[in-house]
């Protein structure tokens, strides 16, 4: 029996995990969300920006990992448009640009923001750290036109934005190692203020940068999206998701405990 539990076919675990997601999705619950300090810091920073200042949003996540950063991007965009903070979108990832385009259009439509005045999507350029460095001296040297092909000189919003000097905050929504790139090349060299919204995978490794102030705020994965949604009073995919998430985490914690009990029991039996 114990052996059976220990070597349970992984497909059984798959089915259990699937059910733990499907059932709460069909029968949603709502639990109170506690806002953590790094999220609060980011919210406070953006909330204190003066109308007319500019936030640069780096959409560094692909279709494969949009579940977490997209609700974050949506919540922050809403907040910015409400506060009349201008948003410049860029991406270092080749497959992120269409996602960014669709999301920005959607939120802008909802909030009545105007392309070219309230927000701009510059798009993608290959080159990683060189793109970051290049924009530090002159954005137009990297992006001579926006995503749709319009020259930057014809976009009213970009008239007074030449490099990082005019960017109040860079928010990197990342699923990979781009945050480190932004810190190493934009913060260290150009003093650009940086915050990040990252997928769960890389949350832990952001903390050293948070403590030194190299990051002024952090949205930790799905939880971060839900917390930000709570702060701007507009519950969305993050809030719904983190509630569903609760049950899967419970399941996994339960499985790990059962697995360990079985493991200790077999070990004791082996010893005796």
């Amino acid at each position: 029996m114990l052996e059976k539990i220990m070597n349970m076919d992984r497909r059984i675990v798959f089915i259990l995990a699937g059910l733990a997601v499907v059932i709460p999705t069909l029968l949603p619950v709502s639990l109170p969300i506690t806002v953590s300090e790094p999220t609060q810091k980011l919210y406070d920073y953006i909330d204190a920006l003066e109308p007319g200042s500019t936030l640069m949003m780096a959409f560094d996540y692909g279709p494969s990992s949009l579940a977490e950063p997209e609700p974050m991007a949506e919540a922050v965009l809403k907040h910015c448009f409400d506060k009349k903070v201008k948003v410049v979108g860029v991406t270092l990832l080749i497959d992120a640009v269409t996602l960014a385009d669709q999301l920005m259009q959607k939120v802008a439509e909802e909030k009545g923001a105007v392309y070219g005045e309230d927000y701009v999507l510059l798009g993608y350029r290959p080159g990683g750290f060189q793109v970051i460095l290049g924009m530090g001296s002159e954005i137009a040297s990297i992006f001579d036109n926006d995503y749709a092909g319009k020259p930057l000189s014809e976009i009213p919003m970009m008239e007074n934005i030449t490099n990082y000097e005019q960017i109040s905050l860079l928010l990197d929504l990342a699923s990979g190692s781009t945050v480190e790139l932004w810190i190493t090349y934009a913060n260290a060299k150009y003093d650009l203020t940086i915050a990040a919204g990252v997928t769960g995978v890389i949350v832990s490794q952001m903390y050293p940068y948070l403590q030194t102030g190299q990051l002024v705020g952090l949205l930790p994965g799905f939880l971060g999206a839900a917390q930000y949604e709570k702060l701007i009073n507009s519950s969305g995919k993050g809030t719904a998701g983190i509630n569903t998430e609760s049950f899967v985490h419970l399941l996994i914690v339960g499985l790990v405990i059962i697995g360990n009990i079985a493991y200790f029991m077999t070990r004791q039996r082996g010893e005796s």
Partner: peptide, 13 residues
């Protein structure tokens, strides 16, 4: 622990 959150988020989506 954080990664579990991230992975499950993908499935939820």
């Amino acid at each position: 622990g954080n990664t579990v959150m991230g992975r499950v988020a993908l499935l939820i989506q």
